[in-house]
Design a binder for these strands. Structure first.
Length: 270
DNA sequence: AGAACCACCTGGCAGC
DNA sequence: TGCTGCCAGGTGGTTC
């Protein structure tokens, strides 16, 4: 579900109400997430104050005094703040009680998400191997060009690989490739230097615009306060298989690359 | 090393 | 109204 824009939207919303707050306790109702929630999480977090709320790829990083709480929303995860929380529902797996009386609630029907704790997040096995942030100035056409040399995977699969570039999931990969005018199936190693520049610019643009729109809500994404995003209204190709291209009118094609639904315009993308 | 699959899990929807 | 099968925003692990 959430890609970089959605996670960033959650981060921006929650940061002001979390920073400076002390964690009173953690209530784990179901520890069976993608990896088990650490049994000693409550002990680890209790009485620590949240110093910052950062994001690395699709991970939210609550920086505490002695370590970091890592939260990944998987496909269907939500992290919401309540001043007066409703009674816990079926998929409300974890609550963080804050000293200001607020409560952060992690909800995730599919349980593909994760809640973990690390003393040094940058060295955590899930964080350390991550690629560049796409909105980092260091993520350039030259960088992408270098990374893709001799790679045979479809370009779309390549830009969705978090070990190359973080944060680009299925929606924004499709949208960025459309904007760059590049076929998703193109072998990554065949990407020319000028087209690498174009693709990097498209990725940055689509992510920036999506953040400005509060992310995309297809089914169940909401931000930290239960509000949906609106970027889905600006899609050119995602979820539009069979419909007319918004630029040239040609029917949008739908196929699969790397097992994921791929949509593109056969006329606009070469 | 890299690429192609599978797995994890629930819910919603189309089709019968 | 069921039931079945398929699909979904992610990504680590296994296999070749």
């Amino acid at each position: 579900m959430p890609e970089l824009p959605e996670v960033e939207t959650v981060r921006r919303g929650l940061a002001p109400i979390c920073i400076g707050q002390r964690v009173l306790r953690v209530i784990v109702r179901d520890a069976r997430l993608r990896w088990p929630v650490p049994a000693d999480l409550s002990t680890q977090l209790a009485e620590q104050t949240i110093q910052r709320l950062d994001r690395r790829g699709k991970y939210l990083l609550f920086q505490l005094e002695r370590g970091t709480l890592l939260v990944h929303l998987g496909m269907t995860g939500k992290l919401r703040f309540f001043t007066t929380p409703p009674p816990p529902d079926k998929h409300d797996h974890l609550d963080l009680q804050l000293a200001n009386g607020g409560l952060l609630r992690f909800t995730d029907p599919r349980r593909f998400g994760a809640v973990l704790y690390a003393v040094e997040a940058e060295n955590h096995p899930l964080i350390a191997p991550l690629g560049l942030e796409p909105l980092d100035p260091a993520f350039t056409g030259a960088h992408l060009y270098r990374l893709t040399r001799n790679r045979r995977v479809p370009l779309k699969a390549f830009i969705m690989d978090a070990h190359q570039v973080v944060g680009v999931g299925n929606i924004y990969a499709n949208e960025a490739l459309f904007r760059a005018g590049i076929r998703p199936q193109l072998g990554a190693g065949k990407l020319s230097r000028p087209r690498a520049e174009k693709l990097v610019a498209a990725i940055k643009a689509v992510l920036t615009e999506a953040i400005a729109a509060g992310g995309s809500t297809l089914r169940d994404y909401v931000d930290g306060f239960g509000q949906p995003g609106w970027f889905q209204l600006q899609y050119f190709v995602y979820g539009r298989g069979g419909e007319a291209c918004r630029v040239c009118g040609t029917p949008i094609r739908l196929s699969r690359t790397g097992g994921r639904a791929t949509t593109w315009c056969p006329r606009c993308q070469k």
